Measured scan of single mutants.
Amino acid sequence: MDPFVVLVLCLSCLLLLSIWRQSSGRGKLPPGPTPLPVIGNILQIDIKDVSKSLTNLSKIYGPVFTLYFGLERMVVLHGYEVVKEALIDLGEEFSGRGHFPLAERANRGFGIVFSNGKRWKEIRRFSLMTLRNFGMGKRSIEDRVQEEARCLVEELRKTKASPCDPTFILGCAPCNVICSIIFQKRFDYKDQQFLNLMEKLNENIRIVSTPWIQICNNFPTIIDYFPGTHNKLLKNLAFMESDILEKVKEHQESMDINNPRDFIDCFLIKMEKEKQNQQSEFTIENLVITAADLLGAGTETTSTTLRYALLLLLKHPEVTAKVQEEIERVIGRNRSPCMQDRGHMPYTDAVVHEVQRYIDLIPTSLPHAVTCDVKFRNYLIPKGTTILTSLTSVLHDNKEFPNPEMFDPRHFLDEGGNFKKSNYFMPFSAGKRICVGEGLARMELFLFLTFILQNFNLKSLIDPKDLDTTPVVNGFASVPPFYQLCFIPV
């Protein structure tokens, strides 16, 4: 058959498939802009700032609406009420993970971030239990974070109060905490193996944040037939998995079943207990991918939040002064901060919360999916439909947070200066898919920041009023603009 005829037939089939998918069930789905064949609503979305586009569309179609990214149908949730109703009140029905062709290629359905069903539930339950087990290797997770915080302070001392970009050092600290939990080992910041790991993690975040990856996920045929950065992403992930597998083999040879040292040991012990169960989800494949998931999810998000926190503290020296006064009063100079201190430091706690609220790190979270046909607000959402959640619409709700575009710790303080919780605080998402490392991340943010401010004054290279804190939105995360500062020993 003539190649031209084959091409026309293929394009015609794709067009018909697109029209059929977009028209099927439209009477039951939430409203939304009319999609174009094949490309859907992509032309109506700013790929570099999806969150802003969703906010604009919500003003037209309401808090629940339908979009098509290519052939992929998505239902968008915008605003606290619908997000709570879906992710919390109907948590089980909305607990699936959205379709990610690239991740599915890399992870093969294993791990904790992109798995679904029984596998996801069992691996998540085990990971939560293990991360909360403060007795691994007779050292609590808090001990590990405190140790890394001391190392971080010593690295900052080496800058000798000269101007520096904190990106690298602030990236090393949370990565080392995860390494300590998974591998029972922290690395020197100049260790070549550690630097290679950091390089792969950072490069992957840069790649994932590009519009090209959005295109690959919406048109998965590209993955096999086109060159691009997605190939580098898959190569980096394969490198990390190979490295983790080597460490798993080392653990198998040296493990003491009665004295687990780290996450890998705990997983291997669980595998041993379930070795007679042919349906067990505790396999080497799941261990390797879960460890890679924890490394990827637990490094860049925390380091970016820390980097943004220091920029905001530079911009608002009056806030920094209040935090340091609270540190001096509650902790002093002669001991290290600990998590028990947080309950006695409402202002510092409010500042950490406000940093996370203000920066809105992951504006749309990772997409969910419905696990069955769901009736939601008089609409029928078919099983498997991807759910896109606007966390921006919750964290920047102007009824809950007056002047949401302003950095103001009073958003989390009552009139008496006591810490005030808010149900709208969802930087880790909400419901059954809430970030498994939430507790660890909150511990790291509090301890790293208090250790830094206990030991250093922060000095800006320019007038604080002239510092730009506008986030650089890159399609996946909101990151701070480049800046330098000086760490002046107190």
Rank of each mutant, 00 (worst) to 15 (best):
V5P: 11
L9G: 12
L15V: 12
S24Q: 15
R26C: 07
P30D: 00
P33W: 00
T34H: 13
N41H: 02
I45F: 15
S51G: 14
K52V: 06
N56I: 08
S58L: 00
G62T: 00
G62N: 01
F69N: 12
M74R: 07
M74T: 09
V75S: 00
H78S: 13
D89W: 05
E92L: 08
E93L: 11
F94P: 02
A106P: 06
R108N: 10
F110S: 09
G111Q: 02
V113N: 09
K118P: 13
W120A: 05
K121C: 09
K121T: 12
K121M: 11
R124C: 01
S127G: 08
M129W: 00
F134V: 12
F134Y: 13
G137N: 09
R144S: 09
R150S: 13
L152D: 01
E154L: 08
E154Y: 08
E155W: 13
T159H: 11
P166D: 00
P166N: 03
L170I: 08
A173T: 04
C175N: 04
C179L: 10
I182V: 11
Q193G: 13
L197T: 05
E203R: 05
R206H: 11
S209N: 13
N217H: 14
F219M: 11
Y225C: 11
Y225L: 13
F226Q: 04
P227Y: 08
T229N: 14
F239T: 12
I244D: 01
I244Y: 00
L245R: 13
S254Y: 07
D256F: 04
I257S: 14
N258K: 15
F263M: 09
I264D: 01
L268P: 00
L268V: 05
K270R: 13
E272I: 13
N277Q: 15
N277L: 11
T283L: 07
T283A: 05
I284A: 08
I284K: 08
G296R: 14
G296S: 11
A297R: 09
G298R: 01
T301D: 04
T304S: 14
L314A: 05
L314F: 05
P317I: 05
E318Q: 14
A321M: 12
E325Q: 15
V330D: 02
R342S: 11
Y347C: 03
V351R: 00
V352S: 05
E354I: 02
Y358C: 15
D360V: 06
P363E: 02
V370L: 09
T371V: 10
C372M: 13
G384F: 03
T385L: 02
T392P: 03
N403S: 14
F412T: 00
D414F: 06
G417W: 07
G417P: 04
G417C: 07
N418I: 08
S422Q: 03
G437F: 04
E438I: 06
M443C: 13
E444K: 05
L449E: 03
T450N: 06
L461V: 14
P464E: 12
D466I: 10
D466A: 11
D468R: 12
T469S: 13
P471C: 10
N474I: 07
V479S: 15
P480F: 03
F487N: 00
